[in-house]
Amino acid sequence: MKIIIEDREPNEEDMILIRCKELDESLLKLIYNLKLEKGKVVGMKDGTISMIEPKDIYYFEAVDNKVFLYCEQKVYETKKKLYELEKDFYQTDFFRASKSIIINLSKVQSINPAFNGRFEAILKNKERVIISRQYVSDLKQRFGL
């Protein structure tokens, strides 16, 4: 793979152009990671504001009209709505697992069947998150099953 870096015109926007015969898995991953890099999330905890890297986020959860983002051990509140986060992280590792949860699939250790058609995702920090039966088909589609 050749990498070419060119100067741009002053009034032009920074651009990454991918020329390929077909979009294979490695190129798709590259695109996902590029998308993730640009979108840090603002999180609030104990009155302080932090910029959270998406790769450090395990999942988002909406509770009582508030949205929280869960990192390995810390929890932050974000002002963004769940549907906005879903849109921001469209076609990345983030996956809408239920009406109130968006999971970072790269933080999933394993998936087990739960009761009544649901699945349970066990995350790398040992937390367990439910994948709704309604969203299981989306997950299958994402992995080409």
Partner: peptide, 24 residues
């Protein structure tokens, strides 16, 4: 039958997750 179907799907999903993310 539903449980067995879900177990098979879980195995496939876990395999896909391992393939996708252990390369990182």
């Amino acid at each position: 039958v539903n449980l067995q179907r879900d177990k098979r799907l879980a195995i496939q999903l876990n395999q896909k997750i391992r393939e996708y993310y252990t390369k990182e």
